[in-house]
Design a binder for these strands. Sequence first.
DNA 1: TTGAAAGCGTTACCAC
DNA 2: GTGGTAACGCTTTCAA
Lengths: 321, 321
Amino acid sequence: MAVTIKEVARVAGVSTATVTRALSSPEVVRPATRERVREVAASLGYHPNRAARGLITGRTGNLGLLVPDLANPFFPSIVKGVQGRAHEADHAVFLADTDEDPAAEAGLVRKLAKQVDGMVLCSPRMAEAELRELAAEVPTVLVYRRIPGVPSVTAEFLDGMRQAVSHLVALSHKKIAYVAGPRSSWANRERVRSLRAVTRKSEVELTEFGNVAPQFHGGVSVADSVLASNVTAVIAYNDLVALGLLHRFAARGVSVPGDISVLGFDDIPLAEMVHPALTTVALPKEEAGQAGVDLLLDRKPAVRRELPTQLMVRGSTGPAR
Amino acid sequence: MAVTIKEVARVAGVSTATVTRALSSPEVVRPATRERVREVAASLGYHPNRAARGLITGRTGNLGLLVPDLANPFFPSIVKGVQGRAHEADHAVFLADTDEDPAAEAGLVRKLAKQVDGMVLCSPRMAEAELRELAAEVPTVLVYRRIPGVPSVTAEFLDGMRQAVSHLVALSHKKIAYVAGPRSSWANRERVRSLRAVTRKSEVELTEFGNVAPQFHGGVSVADSVLASNVTAVIAYNDLVALGLLHRFAARGVSVPGDISVLGFDDIPLAEMVHPALTTVALPKEEAGQAGVDLLLDRKPAVRRELPTQLMVRGSTGPAR
DNA sequence: TTGAAAGCGTTACCAC
DNA sequence: GTGGTAACGCTTTCAA
């Protein structure tokens, strides 16, 4: 049986009320009493039961975190960010993985809703209307998704895309491809929009492929189509797709960046481990998770934070052939 | 404000006790009453407050999961397994990442202990004595660690190592290296033990390197030493270390598997994405997570499950030069 | 500065 | 079958 506040009170020779105060409002109890209580609590290994506390305060000290697929290396970093910052703020984190199933999202959120002070929804795939409903039921912060009226943390996609295209233009690429990710992905829509906006002002001719799954095999499956076109560079929805392209190109004996340049998005750890290393637009991941928690705990309504992006130039991009 | 059991009782014209029974022990209440209560509950959108329920039943419907580092691609798969199975059993999952800090583990477990029905500890680094203490305080299942008296899920390392060595022997390798992982890692100790046992019975000469960090850079850092020895094959503590070896070998112009064969452990998704693809001993990951939850919820005391391993032969191993 | 007691939402026990 | 009520562990009045 776990040690309760009663036990601490008994041993310390005070009332339970004093124990509570010694622990959560130290300034209102006489120093001597406070220290005695704290010592007893420590020696007994007392930790308040947060469920019981939540019952009366209305605050659980818990956060909920929803991700589409933990197997996608983009998300663990965000989870680490959320988790780390939450623990700093003395909150525990419920994790739910939806396996890329938009239909499962709302149910999972509602199930957790009553046990948490707020939810961090990471790249949710569900429809905007449903998302808004949910946000009305439980304090919500969106990470890598933006809808009006709901606090969110995203990155400067437009600027990232500008860096990417400038880089390719500087290498004399004139015809470039974009391999699109899931249609339901807000990030994909943003990337397409940014890319079109950036290329419209330049001499670059854009060809679009997809949509593919945001995974390695998505890139593999579209690689041959990309090769069959006459582009000299390809920007992938994300790094996993880019790695799939690299893989298939290598298997076909196509040289990267000799024959074609490849550029990804995200900067997952893997990007640096492959040969050639992947040029990619780095998105803030841990930082985004931390910022999400900050927004949630500060309760500033409808704040939008947009974090900077950074092109990481590596071996997979080179001069146009 | 959420709707409570009182509200339902009032509207249905029964006592709160009857509402509880209608919902959780349907057989003991008269069908007519039961239906009326259920309809009212549904129409009001009533969901029992799990924290309040837990206070009295002693069961929270929550599980805790501790991992050393979510950024290591081995762990997200386990988390997915735990998460998925827990949700099937209508349990939510608290996730805690210790950032490879053994000292942080016990504190995190104790903080979660009161809010959960049990903890899944994944590759915990802490000392055995401390682990045993913890297991006495809260129902615990160990994944990828084994100590007497505590339920655990591990894999057949010995058999996996046997498969690995047989494979190399069949390719005429006579001198092989092992790159050891962290000294504090139980998995590393098991692998060393298995490897020694297997090679003792064969003609193979074993050279040991390390210990290195269980990460990409760990492999990079030891690669030159391995090359300087006269081995024709190297078995790495895990896939990340193996990838580090591959990376450095490529940078040195060493051909794999022409000059040296490389073999990993884990079968993380990356293993298939690199060139040459990594031959590795696949460990059950999602399955291990699922089995961990099963053990926890079944409450069978001190069960040890040992899941099968499978050598995945890929491009990074070939005939000895 | 401290203690007694009410109450958070739920379930379990004991009467009826 | 059903209702009243104590109890879970905690925080927050209200008095002293």
